[in-house]
Design a protein around this nucleic acid. Structure first.
Lengths: 224, 224
DNA sequence: CGGGCCGTTGACTCTTGTCAATCGCGGTGG
DNA sequence: CCACCGCGATTGACAAGAGTCAACGGCCCG
């Protein structure tokens, strides 16, 4: 069984019990730039919601993911402080987004996107760049998903996180989230970390949420 | 022509041959580009090449792919007639592109992309939409790569191709290309097709480059 | 103290990859 | 015309990597 199903309890309640439409931000409720404070696993938007807004992470981490009908989940990306997410081409979100832990996001009206058409502002450029970065990340991620082994996937993931966090690695997400991001199971993620630890490439202190990169060169070799 | 194909072709035409040429400022928006005729496997650009141009397929098919250092390849997408490819965020291509078989492409200068920053309305919007489509495809593909079984991958691939070709499936690419697109090996692709054939879901005439979809419902079930 | 999570580990299974043989087709040259 | 060759695709036997199922340990929190 896949990780996502195994840990049904960890999935947002909204997913399991259905989500009353009024639970979600009403299309006109949020002014540009308002902040929303989120609890762990709280849903920001669901697959199929209309794309009235997009978001920027202030603190914490957010995951965007898709589901197959049988519950298998693919996390597209983790978004950390400063990242923009939720920009989509169509009228409906094709991903759902939830807070990984307690988090804060700023909400922007999607129509700000139309500034692209008329706007030469710095903001428009920033939004377009965010989109391009998403695309770039998606492309790299496809290579990872389609062609890398479990250990390589984990190594790439750690290096990526280290680069985005400034050298150290503090995992804001669960093994289940990591597994769904890398197209693996939680057991395989765990075993890969154990193997990297055995090979003295990383160290994983007892809390298991911090990772010390011991041999960056070895990691980069795995990253190809 | 079926709706799906018409809409796929409509975007590029609007983008590049817009019916209101006068609202595009001339000098650095793309002049209708020169045509390049390509032989099978001929390279259009390589990973690392600078992104001076982007392209539209006139005929044939083009693949964009990435390589790991050990030679494993992930094909990002196949681009058919009417498709635009080669738009990238950075100064260098992070993919290589080659013709799948004999093909023709139109070449456009990339500098038209800079229209984004200076805010030329219609053109900018459409380029952004093309980018968003790439992103959408990338995202769907990640789900496929990370979470679908071999048979499911092949089923999805066939349905996608059928939608883009107007209902029938004529494979312009080799099993090897398909395998690299789906994150499989050629043997597994072949076995999956054989299994679908055994289950009377598809038929594969002797040339092995045409596929008849016999049980679309079954395919869609596999597609989830 | 007890229960629920989360993560790790072990034993086993199974899908997919690997390696190798074969088939069939199309082109080529005797 | 036909034998030969090369390439792409298929098939089979086997190996291996990852998934599944299950047990366990630590930690937090009531």
């Amino acid at each position: 069984m896949h990780a996502a199903v195994a840990s049904a309890a960890a999935l947002p309640k909204a997913l399991l019990f259905g989500d009353a439409p009024q639970d979600r931000p009403a299309p006109d409720a949020a002014p540009v730039g308002s902040v929303r404070v989120l609890a762990k696993d709280e849903e920001i938007f669901a697959e199929g919601d209309c794309t009235a807004f997009f978001y920027k992470v202030i603190s914490g981490a957010v995951r965007t993911s898709k589901l197959l009908t049988d519950g298998r989940r693919q996390i597209d990306a983790f978004h950390l402080a400063g990242d923009i997410f939720g920009i989509e081409p169509g009228a409906e979100h094709r991903f759902s987004a939830e807070a990984v832990g307690p988090a804060k996001v700023v909400i922007y009206r999607r129509c700000s996107l139309d500034a692209l058409a008329s706007g030469n502002g710095a903001f428009a450029r920033q939004v377009v760049q965010a989109m391009m970065r998403s695309l770039e990340r998606a492309q790299n991620h496809m290579l990872l998903l389609g062609r890398k082994s479990a250990v390589e996937k984990v190594a790439t993931f750690l290096l990526d996180l280290a680069a985005r966090q400034g050298g150290h690695v503090e995992l804001p997400m669960s093994r289940c989230d990591i597994a769904d991001h890398l197209g693996l199971t939680i057991e395989t993620v765990s075993r890969s970390l154990t193997q990297l630890e055995r090979d003295r490439v990383i160290e994983v202190p007892a809390h298991r949420r911090t990772i010390v990169l011991r041999d960056g060169a070895a990691l980069r070799r795995l990253d190809s």
